[in-house]
Design a binder for these strands. Structure first.
Length: 415
DNA sequence: TCTGGGGTCCTAGGACCC
DNA sequence: TCTGGGGTCCTAGGACCC
């Protein structure tokens, strides 16, 4: 473990909202929110009124009467996010990008070239401001976790360097919810035993933490609070699952609703898997009922699949099973499909001679081959003419969606 | 505050194997 | 036949992150 603070965490401030203010000067200095039905991002002016990401639009308007909603320039988010990360890449190849607007960088090997990590962080901030027109906060510390806390403390538009010898002082009075992994539930549990700050957490015996929060969370929090947090910057992390979900408002739990919605979701998931040459063995569906309680059902198949029709069939069976267990529920409010146990390339199976013909969903069977050909044809047409040129339109989901398609596409893009 | 869409990781019980 | 221990996989649920 490095003895000096060489990990940077760089985090663009109120990213989508900042981009909108960059593109349209009239929005600068004003409370704005990207989104509509739901707030995807809020400017700092809006945050001052309590507006937060994920909040229903109606509530946001109540909190902030002057709030202006703006549509999203999703291609610009993609472009500017990439450009900002590219600035970091000028200092080190050791970059771990964790979302469209934040990344870790380990600059330990670049000190002889560019000066101290603090110097580099200051340069990154200035260059992102000059070259992208965007505010970015940077935290610098000995570990990823500390660097991330430092960047949160630095916000908005700031820089915080935590030298190893001042780590304990830095953490002592910070609220526990700044720690990675402490959400509303854990925060409330800690509050019950009188723990509100990281300093108080550090004074709590590890055994009581594990008793309260479970082994993993308790152990992790203890390790961080006592400053043993070794994780390295990982430059490539591969996906473990591919999924899609859709909120439906309140619809009857009937075939004419479930069928088309699942086919649409299966299409989204399967086509993305094929685009990445992936197939998966475990299919999971989630059904959320009217009262927002949700259940999941999953099955692990003997072989990985990536055909749209096959995924839709498996999902339909799973949802039917879930509904059969909850016959009292007459309405659904959300459906989701996710595929995990991913492996590389179902196409490989097609090219082999097939002797495993006992399951008609397998690629080797006549039906499996037909599906493979159809899927590839649809993929190819979309490649040329766009996603909506063929296939299951979003019509299947009705008019209840509060998130623009552009955001979904952004969310599913490779970073 | 009752709410989107994309994910990750952990837990716990049961099945099954050696 | 009334009984150990460890490991792995599967399933369902939950907390959390951006």
């Amino acid at each position: 473990m490095a003895a000096t603070a060489t990990i940077l965490h760089a985090d663009l401030d109120a990213f989508y909202a900042s981009v909108e203010q960059l593109l349209n000067p009239e929005l600068r200095g004003k409370p704005i929110a990207v989104g509509g039905g739901v707030v995807l991002a809020a400017s700092y002016e809006a945050k001052a009124f309590g507006v937060r990401g994920g909040m229903p639009g109606r509530l946001a308007r109540e909190l902030c009467p002057g709030l202006q909603f703006v549509g999203g320039h999703f291609e610009e988010y993609q472009r500017l996010g990439k450009q900002a990360i590219a600035v970091l890449e000028d200092f080190t190849p050791l970059i771990e990008r964790i979302s469209i607007d934040e990344a870790f960088a380990d600059v330990g090997g670049s000190v002889h070239l560019f000066g101290t990590p603090g110097d580099m962080a200051a340069t990154v901030r200035r260059r992102v401001r000059d070259e992208c027109g965007l505010p970015i906060s940077v935290g610098v510390a000995r570990t990823k976790h500390l660097a991330k806390i430092a960047s949160q403390v630095a916000k908005p538009d700031g820089l915080v360097v935590v030298e190893p010898e001042s780590e304990l002082d830095f953490l002592h009075d910070l609220p526990v919810e700044l720690m990675w992994g402490v959400g509303p539930v854990t925060r409330a549990r800690l509050a019950e035993i009188g723990v509100h700050t990281i300093g108080q957490l550090a004074e709590t015996p590890g055994r009581s933490l594990e008793g309260l929060l479970g082994r993993a969370v308790g152990g992790k929090l203890g390790a961080l609070a006592w400053n043993r947090d070794p994780r390295d910057v990982e430059t490539h992390v591969r996906a473990r699952s591919v999924g899609a979900q859709s909120a439906l408002g309140t619809r009857p739990a009937a075939d004419h609703v479930i069928g088309p919605a699942l086919r649409h979701l299966a299409d989204r998931v399967a086509s993305r898997m094929r685009a990445k040459s992936l197939a998966g063995r475990t299919i999971t569906v989630r059904v959320r009922f009217e009262d927002l309680r949700s259940v999941t059902r999953s099955i692990t198949l003997p072989a990985a699949i990536s055909a749209t029709a096959t995924l839709a069939e498996v999902a339909r069976d799973l949802v039917a099973g879930a509904l059969a267990d909850h016959t009292d529920e007459k309405h659904v409010s959300l459906l989701a499909i996710s595929v995990s146990h991913l492996q590389r390339d179902a196409a490989l199976q097609l090219e082999l001679p097939f002797v495993l013909g006992d399951d008609d969903r397998r690629p080797g069977t006549e039906q499996g081959a037909a599906r493979w050909v159809l899927d590839r044809a649809v993929d190819a047409v979309r490649e040329k003419f766009g996603r909506d040129s063929v296939g299951y339109g979003s019509v299947a989901l009705g008019d209840h969606r509060s998130v623009p398609d552009g955001f979904r596409e952004l969310a599913e893009k490779e970073l």
